[in-house]
């Protein structure tokens, strides 16, 4: 989760830097933010895969216990509940982004709301999994 926040944080920080250094029309702004989000999707997927591989290696070195190569019914239930929670958070973020636009703020803030909603939903997904694994499901 931390690695995800760090990678996406660095990525979006560089996006904001580029955005602030340019003067753009509304159409160009929409194109800029759409590109930024489209690039962020494969970046986050690749980060997840790399982090997972590193985690499995470190886990094996420390515990000498191989991770199960399958998901059982409890894992699937936890996954479902965590996904539900993350969708709720992303939905709130999307609602906020529409409200921002409805109240007359520039499109920049709409995309920022979507991005923050996406990051928050990712964090909630991981926290939910952690909670259900610790406290039971």
């Amino acid at each position: 989760m931390l690695s995800m926040i760090v990678v996406l944080g660095i990525y979006y920080w560089s996006v904001f830097e580029r955005f602030n250094s340019q003067v753009m029309t509304t159409d160009e702004q929409l194109q800029f933010w759409s590109k930024a989000i489209l690039i962020a999707i494969p970046v986050s997927i690749i980060t997840k895969i790399v982090v997972m591989i590193i985690f499995v290696i470190i886990n094996y070195i420390i515990t000498r216990e191989k991770m199960a190569g399958f998901e059982d019914e409890r894992d699937k239930l936890i996954e479902l509940k965590a996904t539900r929670n993350s969708y709720i958070i992303f939905g709130i973020g999307f609602f906020v982004s529409l409200a921002v636009l409805a109240f007359g703020y520039p499109p920049k803030y709409m995309f920022i709301s979507i991005i923050l909603g996406g990051i928050a939903s990712e964090i909630f997904d991981n926290l939910s999994k952690f909670y259900y694994h610790r406290k039971g499901v």
Partner: peptide, 19 residues
């Protein structure tokens, strides 16, 4: 029973009710 050890641990501790 083809589940992970963690699931057996959770069932034993009463943290998960199996199907």
């Amino acid at each position: 029973v083809k589940v992970t050890r963690q699931t057996i641990v959770a069932i034993e501790k009463g943290k998960y009710s199996p199907s």
